[in-house]
């Protein structure tokens, strides 16, 4: 495979990295785990003049709980670290489970949560469950920083609001009252499969009612998307198979999948419908799984 020439940088601190990115501007591409970037370079889809590796930035590689904020996940945390995290396993098992079913061990040991987000593809497995868990992100650059809801980060297929010079540094899952969450990925084999369609949900169950629900669809539109009509329909409603099925129908109706190598648009719409009702049922009955 052909790897184009590039200049390689390994800043030692976050501020050094930001300064470097500010200086290089659009000529630089950020390298975290490299599972997407290096592949794109090898197949000729990307030829950056400069690669800025974040490998030395241990400061954004940890998972911790901050009182009043929630669980903060450094953007360089790899998928294996997410699924092995006792903190996440205990509080939101759905996220480690999503990371675990994502790819092979080798890729899970390399790929980072930040890369999975910044890459911006609609089939990414972590953004749906993170959005369901109301995650916010922090973007840092030489000139300052900003925070936003993760769902506002994506604006098109492989398009995000990140500006040249900005680095995604951390993801925060706020403390919350949700009682359950899950991500169901429909892949075409048991392991190492990309999502044909995926659905993440979180629910807040109160007695026999749903006080609130979040439904997030992967590979069902140019960006990862929330099925708000389905969420609105469920809010305050008594839990029943019929209600969950109706939510599935509404989610599918809102989805805008395209024909792809992994499935036709029609099939993907059907999957959005089926997986939505199944994910809701699972989160309602089993909690964060």
């Amino acid at each position: 495979m052909y790897m184009p020439d590039f200049e390689y940088h390994t800043p030692r601190t976050l501020s050094e990295a930001c300064a470097l990115l500010a200086e290089l501007g659009e000529k630089a591409t950020v390298l975290a785990g490299g599972t997407d970037i290096l592949h794109k370079m090898k197949v000729g889809k990307l030829a950056p003049e400069h690669l800025v590796s974040l490998k030395n930035l241990d400061e954004i590689r940890e998972i911790r709980h901050e009182a009043g904020r929630g669980i903060v996940i450094g953007a360089l945390t790899n998928h294996a670290a997410i699924y092995n995290s006792p903190l996440l396993q205990e509080r939101y098992l759905s996220l480690p489970m999503a990371a675990h079913t994502m790819a092979s061990t080798q890729i899970c040991n390399l790929g980072t949560v930040g890369g999975n987000i910044v890459n911006g593809v609609p089939s990414a497995d972590l953004p749906p469950i993170l959005i369901a868990l109301q995650a916010t992100i922090r973007l840092v650059s030489a000139s300052g920083e900003r925070s936003m809801a993760l769902e506002d980060f994506f604006c098109g297929a492989a398009e995000t609001v990140i500006a040249p010079g900005e680095l995604l540094t951390e993801i925060t899952i706020p403390d919350q009252e949700t009682t359950g969450s899950t991500y169901i990925k429909f892949g075409l084999r048991r392991s190492g499969a990309l999502a044909v369609t995926g659905v993440a949900v979180s629910v807040c169950v109160e007695g026999d009612k749903l006080r609130d629900a979040r439904i997030v669809l992967a590979s069902a539109a140019p960006t990862v998307m929330r099925a708000t009509a389905a969420e609105d329909f469920l809010r305050g409603r008594t839990i029943s198979d019929e209600a969950l099925a109706e939510a599935g129908t509404l989610a599918a109706a809102a989805s805008r999948p395209r024909d792809s190598i992994r499935g036709s648009a029609e099939y993907r719409k059907n999957l959005a419908e089926v997986l939505t009702k199944r994910a809701l049922r699972k989160a309602i009955d089993e909690g964060h799984v």
């Binding site: 075409l188 084999r189 048991r190 392991s191 190492g192 499969a193 990309l194 190598i261 992994r262």
Partner: peptide
Amino acid sequence: IKNAELANYRVLTAMD
């Protein structure tokens, strides 16, 4: 060829 790679040319895994 649209899938001259092992992500979309799906040989099975031990899990399958």
